[in-house]
Amino acid sequence: MNQKLQTINTKLMKLYESQPNLWEKQKLIQKILAEENWVLKLDINTAYAILQDLTIPQANLAKVYLTLLNEIK
């Protein structure tokens, strides 16, 4: 799942190239996603905000979040 999120993030960074504020946010998200087990190091509210910024639909947020947690061995 994290890999999928990284792919979305790369696409969004390209898309936002001419929108510095949005691009900067994605740049920070890129760094966060690169952190091993990042989902265990953030409160759930910040993690959901990141998923929303990655355009994950509201209805899928819990499912994606749980998948990220499940992936940590």
């Binding site: 998200i29 760094k31 966060i32 952190e35 091993e36 910040t46 905000a49 910024d53």
Partner: peptide, 27 residues
């Protein structure tokens, strides 16, 4: 587990803090 999360822990906290500044209203 992966690699070495402890190495970047401090800077990770800083990155998250910056991100939160751009998202003052969390869901």
């Amino acid at each position: 587990i992966g690699e070495y999360p402890f190495m970047q822990n401090e800077s990770f906290a800083q990155i998250v803090a910056k991100y939160r500044q751009l998202n003052p209203k969390l869901p």
